[in-house]
Design a protein around this nucleic acid. Structure first.
Length: 956
RNA sequence: GCCCGGAUGGCGCAAUUGGCUGACGCGGUGGACUCAAAAUCCACUGUCCGUAAGGAUGUGCGGGUUCGAAUCCCGCUCCGGGCACCA
């Protein structure tokens, strides 16, 4: 924005961008020089002389979800949460806390790597440049960070400890007997001494060779190499975690098709923690919606596992069902195409003792004119060739094929056909189901497509259409010689049948989870290398004293991508031939080992960064226990971090992974708390209007003018849209622009004033002047605009103003604590408006009111308030001044106005003492002119007085 | 399809959780200052009727509970988010 020439005509000392920027720079420099926001640890290298006393205060840890430093820098949407935590942190410092608040960077990741691929520039260089830009932008907003604590996940000093934690997980197993992780060495010791025996086969430990022992131990580790079906994304050249695949089977990033492939990949046994991850949510101060999302993701369901014998085989098919009560209605079974038993049970010939017509429909389009084996193979190829998006897009038509085998329903003794179909997923339950079409939509659909029998075992309501019935109702058709469920409701029937199954040894009560083990390896360059080497037996941990395992220097970072679903993953690190082979002496002489070539996913670094903030310079440990103890002790602590603010997009992924790592570290005794984040707050998003011209092209939003509710760009009418802020929409507004035009304090306040922190809202540069005018008015109440001389005096404020002041203190305190900054600001506006009116009348600015106002405003507009505080004669920063406390004696209102209602409609108002009796209120109300007139020719049937609120005459 | 949120002036949002709807701010209108404009300051500003006093009406829609409903209950509509063949 150009400064008008006439700017000199403005009062010289009026608060505006020029003054704002001058004092902002000044106070930012001073805070840095004075180490104002250094939060000392009670001991160690972060206990500095200047601030040592602060370590005696109770600690409080306020955390933002740290950003990925992109090349584009910050736009106005990014700092919303950062401002919120900064205001809260400053408020809590004034409340006597030693507040740990810092900002680091999640700097591994795809964009830097892709940029490197395009330009050949090493991602470290890009990353460092981007971080420097972010740091400068954040500094200009006046955040009170402890500069010693913000880490980069790409620093070798940091990822050394990421690797160390990986090794902790690798070197642990989950002991279900005590329900916690324990060091794997303890298991080995127990096996060696015979206090534990292997649970995989009958072969005694002592009789196993080295390879078998290693294999067994590796299978128990919390981090293991698994051969599970994984999400292979050839378009990105890497595998992805379930969470990184969208609902329509494409990659979260890049939108490439994703295929299920059985590949050998690193996995983390997060499933062992499913129950604890679920149960411990209850004690957390998180919004219910986020808890719910985590609960849904973990997906606990209770039911039973039931064994079905395969006719003519020694095999049984084990299924999981949440509706064991419907077992009598199981008329066929389905195995997932990948199920191992499929090969075992498929006969050479189609069974000939069945009705040929029915058999035809069972064989469907895959079984026609083929042997069962050919049909099943054909179907498996069909299923495997489909990406998930294709499977879903085929109108969800049920496909499958009869395997030719039969199984026995344990309740009815009937032989029921066994199918394979891709609507049954290998990864959930046992990969096999019993199908009860009468009580399940999918089974119903499949049964109709394949002409399978349908037997209702729950009686639907009388007028129920020809559809499956999933509701509660009395069991029917559900009895045999030894058990009778008929007449029972669903839940009683479940209990009874499970008891029966358990007595017969054909089934048991069982809980399953939707949550799967976490696929932890990626075929990328710009990530943490695994601290793992391989010998002929399998993976071996790199000794802790050889950490970090650093990324090798490379010039080609490209993963091998393809659009052929059958290519195999080829990590970029495979090209670092020299690095990939390493000679080490691990105790039995120098030997050559192959390095692990995969890297960790981006989540790894963000899983634990908050822990490193506590003790970032520690070279001997990830985190000193005494230091951690200081920051996590206190009655009200629900987790390591007191307040964690970030976007909902991390509701499942990051938060779940992070909680998992934390719990492993807790089990192993490295941290004191069970949970990382005690209070979680999800900020909303700032979006913005974007404009398209007649061709549908985006035009520069800042150049669009509004006239009579219509929008014009160069006098051409344009269309208004609403959406994300971004370059492609040409609607980017940056904090830098806002600081230049209004100053950082105005910008901070506007972001907080727009609405509640958890709500999304549209950015409107036009509205920013509102808070700017407020600061201007408050400044004018302190400084003469013409002369620059202070105008605050030691005069007594009016009793009304004092009352308002104390009511404002009460409200602002509450609002800050609950992060309701928008209403706190409104209160401060009202106070300042009242102050202005009083000054207009008396021409004196009462010091007591002004100083208290500045202290209350300081968390929101810190530079502004520091400056005026200083000008009022205070040498020290106000960052640690006690936050004002309201005097209840002064905040009460002696006289209040209450509305008078007649039949619920407001007909007048009375002024009355706040503590007036009901009788007095009624008397005053009746005396009120309008009320009296209205009551004159009416009969009062009832009078309702709500003390302090209202009085209502019910008349007829 | 299932599960969560949400809907209040021209706009962003308040409302002590059942007690004056619209605090606070933007925008708009009028005024002061100015040669003028900008900036600043003051007043008004939900809608409809009325010159006014005043009245009616109003929190997405339709019902209900209550002396009294933005708030509670029932039934919808629309918007946002999450999950999705999870047995």
């Amino acid at each position: 924005m150009t400064v008008p020439e006439t700017v000199s005509a403005l009062p010289r000392y009026r608060y505006g961008a020029v003054i704002a920027n001058e004092i902002e720079r000044k106070w930012q420099d001073r805070w840095e020089a004075d180490k104002t926001f250094w939060a000392p640890n009670p001991a160690g290298s972060l206990l500095d002389d200047v601030n040592a006393e602060r370590a005696n205060l109770p600690g409080m840890f306020v955390l933002d979800m740290f950003p990925y430093p992109s090349g584009a820098g910050l736009h106005v949407g990014h700092p919303l949460g950062f401002i919120g935590t900064d205001v809260y942190s400053r408020f809590q410092r004034m409340n006597g806390h030693n507040v740990l608040h810092a900002m680091g960077f999640d700097s591994f990741g795809l964009p830097a790597e892709q940029y490197a691929v395009q330009t050949g520039q090493h991602p470290r260089i890009t990353t460092e440049a981007n971080v420097a830009t972010y740091r400068a932008q954040l500094r200009s907003l006046g955040f009170g960070y402890d500069p010693r604590r913000g880490i980069n996940t790409t620093d070798t000093d940091y990822y050394r400890w990421t690797q160390w934690i990986f090794l902790q997980i690798f070197n642990s197993f989950y002991d279900r007997a005590v329900d916690k992780a324990r060091p794997i060495q303890e298991l080995i010791h127990e096996l060696d001494t015979g206090t534990a025996t292997p649970d995989d086969s009958g072969v005694a430990w002592a009789q196993r060779n080295e390879t078998d022992r290693r294999r067994y131990i590796d299978s128990k580790r919390l981090a293991y190499i698994g051969e599970a079906p994984v999400n292979w994304c050839p378009g990105l050249g890497t595998v992805l975690a379930n969470e990184e695949v969208t609902a329509d089977g494409r990659s979260d990033r890049g939108n490439f098709p994703v295929y299920k492939r059985p590949l050998s990949q690193w996995m983390m046994r997060i499933t062992e923690y499913a129950d604890r991850l679920l149960d411990d949510l209850d004690g957390l101060d998180w919004t219910e919606s986020i808890k719910l999302m985590q609960r849904n993701w973990i997906g606990r369901s209770e039911g039973a596992e039931v064994d079905f014998g395969v006719v003519g085989h020694d095999a049984t098919i084990r299924v999981f069902t949440t509706r064991p009560d419907t077992l009598f209605g199981a008329t066929y079974m389905v195995l997932a195409p990948e199920h191992a038993l499929v090969d075992v049970i498929v006969p050479e010939q189609w069974p000939h003792d069945l009705n040929a017509g029915v058999l035809d429909s069972w064989r469907g389009r895959f079984g026609a004119n083929r042997s069962p084996k050919e049909a099943v193979d054909e179907y498996r190829m069909f299923a495997a060739s489909k990406s998930e998006v294709e499977r879903a897009s085929e109108g969800r038509e049920k496909t499958g094929v009869f395997t030719g085998a039969f199984a026995t329903n344990p309740t009815t003794g009937e032989a029921i056909p066994v199918f394979t179909a891709d609507y049954v997923l290998m990864g959930y339950g046992t990969g096999a189901i019993m199908s009860v079409p009468a009580q399940d939509d999918r089974d119903w659909e499949f049964a109709n497509a394949f002409d399978l029998p349908i037997v209702r075992t729950v009686r639907p309501p009388a007028d129920w259409p020809d559809e499956p019935f999933l509701g509660d109702g009395p069991a029917i058709n559900s009895a045999n010689d030894s058990v009778d469920l008929n007449g029972l409701g669903v839940s009683e029937a479940k209990h009874k049948i499970i008891d029966w199954l358990e007595r017969n040894g054909t089934g048991e009560r069982k809980v399953t989870f939707k949550l799967r083990d976490w696929l932890f390896s990626r075929q990328r360059y710009w990530g943490e290398p695994f601290p793992i080497i391989h010998d002929e037996h399998g993976p071996i941990a790199v000794p802790a004293d050889l950490l970090p395992v650093e990324l090798p220097a490379m010039s080609n970072f490209e993963p091998t991508t393809s659009d052929d679903p059958d290519t195999l993953p080829a990590p970029p690190l495979a090209r670092a031939a020299e690095w990939a082979i390493v000679e080490l002496d691990l105790g039995d002489g120098p030997k050559q080992y192959r390095r692990e070539l995969n890297t960790m996913p981006q989540w790894a670094g963000s899983c634990w960064y908050y822990l490193r903030y506590l003790d970032p310079t520690n070279h001997d440990a990830m985190l000193d226990r005494g230091t951690e103890n200081y920051w996590t002790s206190g009655e009200d602590k629900l987790g390591t971090v007191d307040l964690y603010v970030g976007g909902v997009e991390h509701a499942v992924l990051h938060l779940l992974y992070s909680r998992f790592w934390h719990k492993v570290l807790f089990d192993l005794g490295h941290v004191n708390t069970k949970e990382p984040f005690g209070r979680l707050f999800n900020q909303g998003y700032i979006q913005a209007y974007a404009f398209t011209d007649e061709r549908g092209m985006y035009v520069e939003a800042s150049q669009v003018a509004e006239r009579d509710g219509k929008f014009f760009y160069n006098d051409e009418p344009v269309n208004r849209e609403y959406g994300k802020i971004g370059k492609s929409l040409k609607n980017v507004v940056t904090p830098d622009e806002m600081c230049a035009e209004f100053g950082a304090d105005t910008f901070r306040m506007y972001e907080m004033f727009m609405g509640p922190l958890d709500a999304s809202r549209p950015w409107q540069t036009r509205d920013v002047v509102g808070v700017h005018r407020f600061l201007q008015r408050l400044w004018r109440n302190c400084v003469d605009e013409e002369t620059g001389v202070g105008r605050v005096a030691d005069v007594e404020p009016s009793i009304e103003l004092v009352g308002l002041l104390h009511r404002t203190i009460e409200a602002v305190r509450e609002d800050y604590a609950s992060l309701s900054f928008n209403t706190a600001i409104a209160r401060l506006f009202e106070l300042n408006n009242a102050l202005s009116r009083e000054i207009d009348a008396t021409h004196e600015s009462p010091r007591s009111v002004v100083e208290t106002t500045l202290l209350m405003l300081a968390p929101l507009a810190p530079h502004f308030c520091e400056e005026l505080w200083h000008r009022l004669g205070h040498e020290e920063s106000l960052a640690y001044e006690p936050f004002p406390v309201a005097d209840p004696a002064l905040s009460v209102q002696t006289t209040i106005e209450i509305p008078v209602q007649i039949n619920g409609k407001v007909r007048g108002a009375i002024q009355i003492a706040a503590d007036a009796s009901n009788e007095a209120i009624e008397q005053a109300a009746r005396a009120q002119q309008k009320v009296a007139a209205a009551l004159a020719d009416a009969q009062v049937r009832k009078v309702i007085v709500v003390p302090g609120r209202t009085i209502n005459f019910v008349v007829s």
